[in-house]
Simulated assay, not measured.
Amino acid sequence: MTTTETSLQDAGTSAAATPGSRVVRIGTRASALARTQSTTVADLLTERTGLVTELVPISTHGDVSREPLAQMGGTGVFVSALRDALLRGEVDLAVHSLKDLPTAPPEGIALAAVPPREDPRDVVVARDGLTLGELPQGATVGTGAPRRVAQIEALGLGVQLVGIRGNVDTRIAKVRDGELDAVVLARAGLNRLGRVEEATEVLDPIQVLPAPGQGALALECRADDDLVAIVATALDDAPTRACVTVERVLLAELEAGCSAPVGALAEVAMGEVGDELWVRAVALSPDGTLAVRRSAAGPLDDPVALGRSLAAEMLADGAADLISERPAT
Results as ranks from 00 to 15, higher is better:
Asp237Asn: 08
Arg241Tyr: 09
Ala32Val: 15
Pro327His: 02
Cys221Arg: 03
Thr289Lys: 08
Ala150Ile: 00
Glu54Trp: 01
Pro327Gln: 06
Val282Pro: 01
Met72Asn: 09
Arg176Val: 15
Arg121Met: 11
Ala328Pro: 00
Ala296Met: 13
Pro210Thr: 09
Arg48Gly: 11
Leu250Met: 10
Thr170Phe: 13
Ala319Met: 04
Ser309Gln: 13
Leu315Thr: 00
Glu220Ser: 12
Ala305Phe: 05
Ile58Tyr: 01
Ile172Arg: 06
Asp321Lys: 08
Thr49Gly: 07
Asp224Gln: 05
Pro116Ile: 04
Leu180Gln: 04
Val168Pro: 00
Leu69Ile: 02
Ala70Lys: 06
Ala281Ser: 09
Arg127Trp: 01
Asp92Lys: 05
Val141Asn: 11
Leu33Thr: 10
Ala216Trp: 03
Asp84Met: 05
Leu87Glu: 12
Arg293Ile: 10
Leu157Phe: 07
Leu219His: 09
Val149Ser: 01
Glu313Tyr: 04
Val208Ala: 06
Arg147Glu: 05
Glu247Asp: 09
Gly20Met: 10
Ala85His: 08
Asn167Lys: 10
Asp119Met: 02
Val159Met: 01
Cys258Glu: 06
Ala112Tyr: 13
Glu313Leu: 13
Leu101Glu: 15
Leu254Asn: 03
Val64Glu: 12
Gln214Trp: 04
Ala16Leu: 14
Gly12Asn: 09
Arg35Asn: 09
Asp302Cys: 04
Leu132Cys: 04
Pro327Gly: 08
Val183Pro: 12
Asp63Arg: 05
Gly158Asn: 02
Asp181Val: 02
Thr46Tyr: 00
Arg195Trp: 15
Val125Thr: 08
Pro261Gly: 00
Leu157Lys: 06
Thr3Phe: 08
Val159Trp: 06
Arg121Trp: 11
Glu313Ser: 13
Gly318Lys: 04
Glu198Leu: 15
Val196Lys: 11
Lys99His: 15
Ala281Lys: 13
Ser65Asn: 13
Glu272Arg: 06
Thr13Ile: 03
Thr49Leu: 04
Thr39Ser: 14
Cys243Val: 03
Ser7Cys: 00
Leu254Cys: 08
Pro136Gly: 08
Thr28Lys: 08
Leu8Thr: 09
Gln214Ser: 12
Ala216Gly: 05
Ala42Asn: 07
Leu306Ser: 14
Ala316Lys: 04
Arg308Ala: 15
Asp63Thr: 06
Ala173Tyr: 02
Val249Arg: 14
Leu315Arg: 09
Ala15Val: 00
Arg241Ala: 03
Thr233Ile: 00
Leu310Met: 09
Ser31His: 08
Arg127Cys: 05
Asp226Ser: 15
Val162Pro: 05
Glu134Ile: 08
Asp302Gly: 07
Val162Asn: 05
Pro116Phe: 03
Gly133Ile: 02
Glu67Thr: 10
Asp236His: 12
Arg326Phe: 10
Leu93Gln: 10
Val246Tyr: 12
Arg294Pro: 01
Glu253Leu: 04
Asp119Val: 07
Arg241Phe: 07
Gly178Asn: 14
Ile26Gln: 06
Arg248Ile: 01
Ala283Met: 05
Arg127Met: 05
Thr53Trp: 11
Glu179Ala: 13
Gly62Glu: 08
Asp84Pro: 00
Trp278Cys: 11
Val162Gly: 02
Arg29Ile: 07
Thr18Glu: 14
Pro120Leu: 02
Gly12Val: 07
Thr233Pro: 00
Ala328Gln: 10
Glu267Trp: 00
Leu69His: 13
Ser259Gln: 12
Leu111Gly: 05
Val77Asp: 06
Asp236Met: 05
Arg176Thr: 14
Gly27Asp: 10
Pro57His: 07
Ala16His: 14
Ile172Glu: 03
Pro205Cys: 02
Gly271Cys: 01
Gly76Tyr: 11
